[in-house]
Design a protein around this nucleic acid. Structure first.
Lengths: 137, 137
DNA sequence: CAGCTTGTAATTATAATACTTACAAGGTTT
DNA sequence: AAACCTTGTAAGTATTATAATTACAAGCTG
């Protein structure tokens, strides 16, 4: 898991403040990374339909209200893995355990991942913004 | 996340078959990694109190029944991260969003992680063994 | 004692992640 | 139109994480 997910939420939180437009360079300053990283992440968010950008013109805008964007939407937008729990790659197919462990583990890992994603689905960008305001005051 | 967790479950599943003792080299053959990797993981499992090994003597044995070992026990035994979702490291403290995003995100990530772990807690080693037998038949 | 085992430190190899440079494509301003 | 911005992307480098391996001390057993 890389940190693009956290960066994506950070970007959307900024956009949701409203007083834009924000250039990729400005956002990069807030996030603490190179502007190219911002442009790559906004690219994914755009392809996922969460925001709108135009080549050559400064700023990005959300395509829908913040209470209509869940953290699961964001998770799926970035290149997040199917399951964060990794199965080992080379079990011995000649061993009764080795032959089937990947399949059995994958079942469990998918269920655990679903539980995690279900929790992310319950949090909206609007709630993140609220929490940020609360911390700031 | 590394694959030590999957390897740990694999090891415990082997031990739960009963017809041991299994040397680290034998286990390595089933898992598909170097014997040293097995010895490192069994070391963590031993320190977590899940199995018993002795220097110089072949084999490892479970310290309790398989239905008393959950996948969460195993997860905590290996060096699994507090949260699998990573917060970005260098947000700008002079920006209202950057100053608080880590804290807000961490709250959410901890909750999501708890949901995942709760699911792991519901699965026992005994159930993994059952699933393996079912697949094998 | 000889020959095995496990435990652990240290090293190397490989892969994942992060960072940066470079530049084309497109818009805006004068 | 020209100068100067912006975003989108590809490509290359640096850094870090992970995996694999070597080496050997500590310990058991016959």
């Amino acid at each position: 898991m890389n940190s693009e997910y956290a960066i994506a939420v950070h970007i959307l939180s900024l956009l949701n403040q409203g007083d834009g437009p924000y250039s990729s360079e400005y956002i990069a300053g807030s996030v603490g990374v190179n502007p190219v990283v911002i442009r790559n992440v906004t690219g994914r968010l755009r392809r996922a339909g969460l925001l709108h950008t135009r080549r050559g013109v400064t700023g990005a805008t959300l395509t829908r209200r913040a209470d209509q964007i869940t953290l699961l939407d964001v998770y799926r937008a970035v290149d997040a893995p199917q399951s964060m729990l990794k199965v080992h790659q080379k079990p011995n197919p000649n061993c009764p355990v080795g032959a089937n462990i990947q399949c059995v583990l994958d079942d469990v890992f998918v269920q655990a991942q679903a539980a995690l994603e279900s929790r992310l689905e319950q949090v909206t960008l609007a709630e993140i913004t609220s929490a940020l305001h609360e911390k700031a005051s």
